[in-house]
């Protein structure tokens, strides 16, 4: 099964996928932006500031999902000693950090008109801040530790330890009294959000997921080339 992520086997497909995403990305982006900024209605309480949700919520979801997948891959890598998985986790980390920071910044921009403050040491916001610190530590471990094996081990440990923070982020709004509202969309499929707002939200999520896939594939391709360049005489 793990042969499926063999760089030589999938390199050709990476190029094809990058071209495919590039070809549909801008059309989907324009459609998503039209729905998010023009066609979706303002909220009866928050007015037009609710449109920030269309970048804030997908960013937060991607930040969380990236870390979860990164930590699970680290566990697999630890158990099965598969080096290619480390290439994938190394490629996911900067994407996760980008979207976690975007969730924090856009959340702050949403907080000012909604709560009257840019920032509060609220459980959800603080735990998201902790997530970004885990991402930074992960990226730094690869930058500062020269021995690749050691760097991979350290980053795997950071990812596995950081996994504890994910349920804390998810349930922070239920466990503590927070400024942040509880989830409007639940994992079991029940939703407190009207379809006229759910559609733009899902469209923006799709666009940002495609963007993530594009960056991940480009970063993974870069990592493969870097390794092949190092070992070119051994081929």
């Amino acid at each position: 099964m793990f042969d499926l992520i063999n760089p030589s086997r999938i390199f050709h497909w990476i190029e094809k996928l990058i071209n495919f995403i590039n070809s549909i990305f801008f059309i989907l982006l324009i459609i998503a932006l039209m729905f998010a900024l023009l066609l979706s209605p303002p909220d009866y309480l928050q007015g037009d500031s609710v449109r920030i949700m269309y970048v804030h919520v997908p960013s937060a979801w991607i930040g969380l999902a990236s870390f979860t997948s990164l930590a699970l891959l680290s566990i697999f890598s630890f158990i099965f000693k598969i080096k290619n998985l480390n290439l994938v986790t190394k490629s996911i980390a900067p994407i996760g950090l980008l979207f976690t920071l975007l969730a924090i910044v856009t959340g702050s921009l949403w907080g000012k008109p909604t709560w009257g403050t840019w920032w509060a040491w609220d459980a959800r916001i603080t735990s998201m801040m902790v997530l970004s610190i885990f991402y930074i530590l992960l990226i730094l471990s690869h930058k500062l530790i020269e021995q690749e094996d050691k760097a991979n081990k350290v980053s795997n440990i950071i990812a596995i330890v950081g996994l504890i923070n994910i349920p804390i982020i998810k349930y922070s709004v239920d466990w503590w009294n927070t400024l942040h509202q509880p989830s409007s969309i639940k994992l079991d499929g029940t939703s407190a959000i009207h379809s006229s707002m759910l559609l733009p939200l899902m469209l923006m999520l799709l666009v940002l997921l495609l963007y993530c896939a594009l960056i991940l594939l480009m970063k993974y391709k870069t990592e493969i080339i870097r390794i092949k360049k190092k070992n070119i005489k051994r081929i």
Partner: peptide, 9 residues
């Protein structure tokens, strides 16, 4: 707030 959020993203 809205434009800044989209622009930053």
């Amino acid at each position: 707030y809205v434009w800044l959020s989209f622009a930053i993203t």
